[in-house]
Design a protein around this nucleic acid. Structure first.
Length: 836
DNA sequence: GCAAGGTC
């Protein structure tokens, strides 16, 4: 007698074999795939693992050309099922031919049943031996032996429910995705696919709804009156009982009544005990949330880690909705096991010292038990068995959560003080942990004490400080990945196993992104969701999934025929498709606009900013007839601005036009041009947009010195135009540094000499003070000598090394000559730093 | 090139 069993995956097959074969297992190869041979109860056993689904649906070949098939026709076509993993088909048939009995031993859920049926279908092509089903929800020896000792009939309805889902999901996803993608491509050039699906779309919908709430939020002012009191035992804070006061006058009135208060009275003191129960047992969503919140592990990694811990026999099956332990769950022997493990010993012993009462949730989906440890293990043992860095941490979380479920509630002592200050009521409260209970085993929850000094009833306390603080109500916060998972779970979006994948799909499509633990919508996602919620609102909401799920559930429960469910589902999808078609224009124009905007934003060289008229993107447009600034909203938006005809254009991102708030372009090396206004030197606000970089205070008046450069001459001038000027090194590149001279406070210059002949390895760069009225500056000028100075000033300088009356009078004319041009051309003259 | 669901 030979029994052949198919498990969902190789690791599960190996585990089953090692349990049933009691260690005496031969690993063999069937068509190149691993299988396990052993003897159990006098029979020959062969167990092979599949690789999840080995079959899939797709449309017949001729429907695969997007451009030739109207997407709507897909809804009337029956997809075909075909084998995706040929090697498994060969192995299944090979084993089936040797079998006297076949047992399906995939995971015990809807998809597992379906995967088993894939094997069953292929096996039945070569044999007609009986096929039965082994059901186990943990790869523990007890569960597995029980399941194989009493196999049941395969559940046809359960498998067909999954089949219906596959077909409906494909029809809808393919038709909608092609329709939206092709429609948008009529208006904007893009290679990207805009996908739609019954799970990914509502997932994005949650992020969209939150974003809408954030955008619609209007902050309101509120006031809060607080006091700092001082008692014998120390200081503490109290809040006026009115709490957040939204009326400014009212807050001011109360605050007025408190004016001059020096003393408060403790009218009443109450001390209460409060209990916090342990959290519910872990189902998948709760586990993923806690892994993210406590361990900072992403949903995908957390699920994969739990999967590996399950396969290695450390923890139970990780995909479950149930958060209630079974009535006959054997807590005692498991806790005994933990009592032998050093890290968990104290908690386990305290649990064993009294009758065990588990904390239970209310969900029993009859799928798998809550995620719990199968056996106690040390961290080192876990990390060497499971090759994922976070494995030990995740095991520890699961184990501690399990132990916490069996421990008593935590007890807090809450103290509340009711105070009066000039008849105005204040409250103050504190919390102290009296009995840690389950928190002892659960260090992830950080319940900090809020201490109050010891204060007695009727005690008088000093008022140290009173404040009336204005605050603003804060907008809703962005969703966290954990919250998103909660929403998905609550609305039945995806399975426990795929929820993380749907989040990833949306990221891949550019619909939203995650920064740290928070999720933010992107423009494409926002406009797509907006378009969909106007045309097919049901798609953006979780309703779409629940409608299909309800149909499938009826198939699973045997209340509806498979074909009937398919027909009904297809009608539903056709209705939505009609709505999509009817709203094609509204749906696609905004998305197309966003795609064009994104392309324009990417084009850093030409991107200018956003259009005040329509909100789309302004960018430089080059045509055969010239160039201008135009809007990506064209032709709906005709906003445009002229540009100078010649000269290379550079967008100055660090400069903002103070007049119109528009972008500023640099034209060649000559001048600047504010978009929408024209050349900056014609604008009276030029000085404000381009404040001169000052070197230091003017020694003659209360102005500041700044660098004025011309093509063949440069010097420092005074912002107040008092006439004082100062020479600078004649040659070399001068850069004003943010570093001040320690002696006089003027900013230092970095002087980079152009490479002179035969200067060898001498450093060409130095930081210098050039102030002639400063000891440092004097040193510099002495060193370089008069020859290095500007020609125009050389005469004066040689006669008068430090500044004097002579310099002043001559300088005035130079400055007068300069200022006329400086205001118009200084920026062009290279005297100021421009950032690119 | 489309979905969601398994798993590697």
């Amino acid at each position: 007698m030979t029994v052949v069993a198919f498990a969902e995956k190789n690791k599960a097959a190996a585990q089953i074999a090692s349990i049933l074969g009691d260690g005496e297992v031969d690993k063999i190869s069937v068509e190149g795939l691993p299988a396990y041979e052993f003897k159990w109860k006098g029979e020959e056993w062969l167990v092979m693992g599949l690789s999840g689904h080995i079959m899939n649906y797709d449309f017949p070949e001729k429907y695969n050309k997007w451009s030739e098939v109207d997407p709507g026709t897909l809804l009337g076509v029956d997809p075909e099922k075909f084998v995706t993993r040929k090697e498994y088909e060969a192995a299944i048939k090979n084993l089936a031919k040797r079998a006297d009995k076949i047992i399906l031993a995939c995971d015990y859920d809807r998809e597992g049943e379906n995967i088993g049926f894939e094997a069953k279908t292929l096996a039945e092509e070569v044999t007609n031996v009986p096929v039965s089903r082994a059901r186990f929800s943990a790869l523990s020896p007890k569960e597995v032996r029980k399941a194989f000792e009493s196999p049941v009939d395969p559940d046809h309805n359960l498998a067909m429910a999954a089949e219906a889902r596959q077909i409906l999901d494909l029809k809808m996803g393919a038709a909608f995705t092609r329709f939206v993608t092709l429609s948008v491509r009529e208006k904007a050039r893009t290679k990207d696919v805009l996908s739609i699906g019954p799970c990914q779309t509502p997932t994005c919908g949650f992020v969209y709804e939150r974003e809408k709430a954030i955008r619609a939020f209007e902050a309101k002012d509120f006031w809060k009156i607080t006091a700092i009191f001082a008692a014998k035992g120390g200081e503490f804070e109290g809040t006026h009982r009115a709490g957040n006061i939204h009326d400014k006058e009212k807050a001011a009135e109360i605050f007025k009544r408190l004016k001059g208060a020096k003393e408060g009275l403790v009218v009443k003191k109450t001390v209460k005990e409060a209990k916090t129960s342990p959290p519910n047992p872990l189902n998948t969503t709760e586990f993923l949330k806690r892994a993210s919140k406590f361990l900072g592990i992403s949903p995908e990694v957390a699920l994969e880690t739990a999967e590996q811990l399950y396969l290695a026999g450390f923890t139970s099956y990780p995909r479950t909705e149930t958060n209630k332990y079974a009535d006959d769950f054997d807590f005692k022997s498991l806790v005994f096991d933990f009592a032998r493990q050093k890290e968990y010993k104290p908690f386990a012993e305290s649990i064993l010292s009294a009758p065990i009462v588990p904390k239970n949730g209310e969900k029993d989906a009859h799928d798998h038990p809550p995620i719990h440890p199968i056996r106690a293990a040390a961290r080192g043992e876990v990390s060497s068995a499971v090759n994922i860095p976070q494995a030990a941490e995740v095991y520890d979380l699961i184990s501690r959560h399990f132990l916490a479920n069996l421990m008593p509630a935590a007890v807090f002592e809450k103290t509340h003080l009711h105070l009066k200050v000039q008849e105005e009521p204040f409250d103050s409260s504190g919390t102290v942990l009296k009995d840690a209970g389950w928190l002892e085993a659960y260090p992830f929850e950080n319940k900090k004490d809020k201490l109050l000094p010891f204060v007695e009833e009727k005690e008088k306390v000093d008022v140290k400080k009173l404040s009336n603080t204005k605050s603003k109500t804060s907008p809703p916060k962005k969703l966290t990945e954990a919250e998103l998972l909660t929403l998905m779970d609550k609305h039945g979006i995806g399975t426990k196993a795929t929820a993380p994948t749907h989040i990833e799909t949306n990221k891949k499509r550019g619909y939203f992104e995650t920064k740290g633990k928070t999720v933010s919508i992107l423009d494409t996602g926002f406009t797509l969701m907006e378009g969909l919620s106007l045309s097919v609102p049901i798609l953006v909401r979780p309703d779409i999934r629940s409608k299909i799920e309800a149909l499938i559930q009826e198939v699973e429960d045997g209340k509806k025929e498979f074909e009937a469910a398919l027909d009904e589902g297809t009608v539903l999808i056709k209705e939505m498709y009609a709505q999509l078609e009817a709203n094609k224009k509204e749906l696609t124009s905004n998305i197309a606009g966003t795609i064009k905007d994104e392309a324009a934003l990417e084009d850093k060289k030409n991107y200018i900013g956003s259009c005040k008229a329509c909100g789309h993107v302004l960018r430089i447009v080059q045509t055969d007839s010239g160039r201008f600034v135009g809007c990506t909203g064209y032709p709906d938006c005709r906003n445009s601005f002229p540009l100078p005809k010649t000269g290379a254009l550079t967008v100055l991102r660090s400069k903002e036009c103070k007049k119109e708030g528009a972008a500023v372009l640099k034209v060649g090396n000559k001048y600047n041009w504010a978009v929408g206004i024209g050349p900056c030197f014609k604008c009276e606000l030029e000085k404000e947009c381009y404040p001169p970089e000052t070197v230091g205070p003017c020694p003659e008046c209360d102005g500041s010195m700044f660098l004025i450069s011309f093509k063949d001459n440069r010097f420092l001038g005074c912002t107040k135009r008092c006439g004082y000027t100062h020479s600078v090194p004649k040659t070399g590149k001068l850069t004003l540094l943010d570093k001040a001279c320690e002696s006089c406070g003027w900013k230092l210059f970095r002087l980079k000499e152009e490479k002179g002949e035969g200067e060898g390895n001498e450093s060409p760069e130095e930081d210098i003070c050039i102030n002639r009225r400063c000891t440092e500056g004097i040193k510099y000028w002495k060193k370089v000598g008069p020859r290095n100075e500007n020609r125009a000033q050389q005469k004066r300088v040689s006669a008068e090394p430090s500044a004097g009356p002579g310099e002043k009078s001559t300088a005035r004319s130079a400055e007068r000559q300069a200022t006329g041009r400086v205001s118009k051309a200084a920026s062009a003259a290279g005297g100021r730093k421009e950032s690119k």
